[in-house]
Amino acid sequence: MSEMPHDPMRDLVEEYALGQLDDVQRAVFETRLADDAALRRELAETLNTLGELALSAPVALPATLKNRVMAGVANSPPAQSSNVIAFASPARRSRATLYLGAALAASLMLVARLAFDLRAAQDEAANARRLSVSTARVTAQLDSLIAQLTDPGTETVTLAATGEAKPIIKAYINRARRSVTLSATQLETLPAGRAYQLWFIVGAKAVPSVTFTSDSSGHALVREIAMPAGAVAATAITEEPAGGSLAPTTKVIFVGKLATE
């Protein structure tokens, strides 16, 4: 009897319940949550456990508190729309992460777009009673992205702009797999023949990596970029000829320092 394959999403239940996933991870998790009853059940059990923990130290209530609560309730009309506190409130965010929230909307859109494509393709496939080639492709893309983002070994590095540039870039780095996924938003559209190039800083040397450009809305998602051998201290991005350069020819636009290996 074969063993069930490990589902990396299961490892995110606790982090989600504690509000510790970043925006992209949370979007991926919630996408899956919507379609996975077992995952929802597991999450509910985890939230119940945290609830037990939270309320396990009751204290005596001041006599006046109930009146204050009831007065507060009387002044709070029931909500008609949003303004709901989700179960998984995000953990404290750094300033960079707060800025990143807006920027990551683009990444979320990319993920959501993949998910939407996947669902749309799945509907189509159901109607036709077969999976289309596009469904398989999108499924593979989404699965790969989920695996990358949810791997416990993946660390997240935000590449800070060195100047006034608005774009925010985030790198998901998995040292064990020597792999990086890059997510960017609000990138400036470069002139024809120019591209952004990623560099890995190993020792004092800039090792060239992939080139990429943004789409018309300034988004870019580059998946599974191979890391070079050696201890990578940082990643950086410059603007280069579309074919890439062997060494940076322009000043660094973004840089992100990695934790020491």
Binding site: L43, L47, G51, L55, G72, V84, I85, F87, A88
Partner: peptide
């Protein structure tokens, strides 16, 4: 405590039992 129960009151219609117990929801808020 005051803010929590005001929030519970405002959002009561949006509570989802499938996402955990009432106590868990109140604790989260």
């Amino acid at each position: 405590v005051v803010d929590t129960f005001a929030q519970v009151w405002r959002d009561a219609s949006r509570f989802e039992l499938g996402r955990g117990s009432v106590g868990a929801w109140v604790a989260t808020i």
